[in-house]
Every structure is written in C-alpha cells, then in structure tokens.
Amino acid sequence: MPEALSIIVIETDPERAGLIEDSLREAGSFEITVIPETTGLARRISEINPDIVLVDMASPSRDMLEELTLASGPLERPVAMFVDRSDDGATKAAIDAGVSAYVVDGLRADRIKPIMDAAIARFNMVQRMRTELETTRRALEERKVIDRAKGLLMKARGIDEDEAYALLRRTAMDQGRRVADVAHALVTAAGLLS
C-alpha cells in the first residue's frame, strides 16, 4: 500500500474549501491541506511538498504556480501541470469545470484519476452556484438602475410609473438597446447634470 498522497487545495473561501475537501475524502484517503490564495503561496507549497496541488482556474494566484513548473522553482521535485493523454479527456473536463491541477513528476495516472474525478465533480457544482449568484446579482443591480431611471423620468416629466417604464422601453427598442442600458445612460447623465 503506497503512502497516502498529499494534496494542497488553494481556496480562500472556507465554505467552498470545505466542500472540496469533503468530496476528496469520499474519493480516498489523502492528506489534505487547504491554503488561501496569499502572496506567500509558493513558499507555503514548498514547505508542505505535496504530490498534487488543486487550484481554481478563476483565481489569479494560479500564475504563481506556473513558477513551480520551472526547473529552478522552489519545489525540489519537478512539477508539471496535469495533462491527461487518455481519450476521456480529463484535462478538458477539468478546465471546463474550472479546476487545474499540478502534479509531481512520476505520479501514476491511476493514482491521480480518482482525485481528478472528485475535484471535477465538485468544481462543476461550485461553478454552477457561482454563475447563478452572478446572474441574480446582475438582475438585482439592473432592477435598481431601472427604478432610479423611472423615478427621474416621473419627476422630470410629471408622468406615472407605468408611463415612465413604457418610455424607457420604447427608447430602448428604437435604439436597439436593452432597457437596463438606456436606464443606466439616463442615470449617469442625470448624475453629471445635477
């Protein structure tokens, strides 16, 4: 029985880190360390000397890991980005899910696979949640701007809310733009004029 692989997960959000850690534990017995995306990342990693590093592709700190792939990097063992040569394309799946893995040289593919499968599944879910959150946030923001634009029109032209909205919509249609964009332009212009 080979020694348990040591995995570093780079994640600042403790809740998401916990989710990823849980699903890795379900996939096998590993030594897992979670570290946040700090500037001392490369040093922390070399202290722990892991077999695998998992990092969110959306994190800017990923560029710090690239350094580890150079021969003169702080890790003594050569590290390479995980590249899957099989037909099922785990690398592509990983990138779609938004996770990237760095693996020490010479680690057997069958030892990496369960880890990648678990990470991909979890990151897929995290990414879905993130997209939904972003969509909701945008919708809310747009509604706020439209409300402000309606208010401005109601005051300036002495019309009611429905008329104000109809005016915004007509303008948007005439100009081939979105209602939220027209509202945004109006609010910005009003801000400049006041």
């Binding site: 592709m57 959306a58 994190s59 800017p60 990923r62 890991l65 690239e66 980005m81 990138i95 990237s100």
Partner: peptide, 15 residues
C-alpha cells in the same frame, strides 16, 4: 481571463 496561465490553457485547448 483571470490569469495568464488560464488564458494560455484556454487558447491551447481551443476554447
């Protein structure tokens, strides 16, 4: 893109 390495990977993989 969030980072140069991610940008490079997306280009290399045809995204």
């Amino acid at each position: 893109a969030p980072s140069w390495s991610t940008l490079r990977d997306q280009l290399m993989l045809g995204r």
